[in-house]
Simulated assay, not measured.
Amino acid sequence: MAKNGGNSFLGFVAGAAAGALLGVLFAPDKGKNTRERLTFKLDKYREDLEDLVEDLLEERKVAVTAAKSEGQRVIDDAIKHAEELMGEVDALKERIATPALDEEEEDK
């Protein structure tokens, strides 16, 4: 159950971020404003992921008994997935920072 709970939580976080991202992308606004809002949301998402990794690392220090070893594996998987998500957030932010040519023409 703990294994499913960890994966479910990460799925929820990823789904919430994807929903926020799509909401911002499809909102009618200028490209510059959309990029700024998206960058802000991605920064917040990255901070939340960093907090999650810190919490998981603290939990890993507490794992002492054999019964917790399975929880340790789940924590390690969650840390790995969170770090992958942070890398994806950074890549998205880089792509957002470079405006597309058609948006530059739109802003003129």
Score class of each variant (00 low, 15 high):
D102H: 13
L56N: 06
R73P: 01
K41P: 03
L56Y: 10
L52H: 03
R35M: 08
R46N: 13
I75Q: 00
G5F: 12
E83N: 10
E47K: 08
K80W: 01
N7V: 08
V64H: 01
L92W: 11
R73A: 04
L38R: 04
A63V: 13
G31N: 09
D55S: 08
M1N: 05
K61R: 09
I79Q: 04
Y45D: 08
T98Q: 12
L52Q: 09
L57W: 05
R37C: 09
Y45W: 14
D55V: 04
E106H: 02
T65I: 03
T34L: 13
E84K: 04
L52W: 02
L10H: 03
K61D: 10
E36L: 13
I79M: 01
F26M: 14
L56R: 08
R60D: 02
L56D: 04
V53Y: 06
T65G: 00
K68A: 12
L52P: 09
D55W: 07
T98Y: 02
D77Y: 00
V13Y: 06
E103Y: 07
A18H: 09
K41G: 01
I75Y: 02
E84S: 10
R37S: 11
T65Y: 02
F12N: 09
T34W: 07
K108E: 13
L52F: 07
D102A: 15
A82K: 01
E59Y: 11
E106F: 06
D77W: 03
I79Y: 00
E94Q: 10
A78G: 03
E106Y: 06
V74C: 08
I75W: 03
V13H: 02
E88V: 02
E103A: 10
V89H: 01
I75A: 05
L92E: 06
G71Y: 01
Y45E: 07
A18R: 09
P28A: 14
G87D: 13
H81A: 11
E47T: 15
G87T: 13
K93A: 09
D48E: 15
D55M: 00
E104K: 13
R60Q: 08
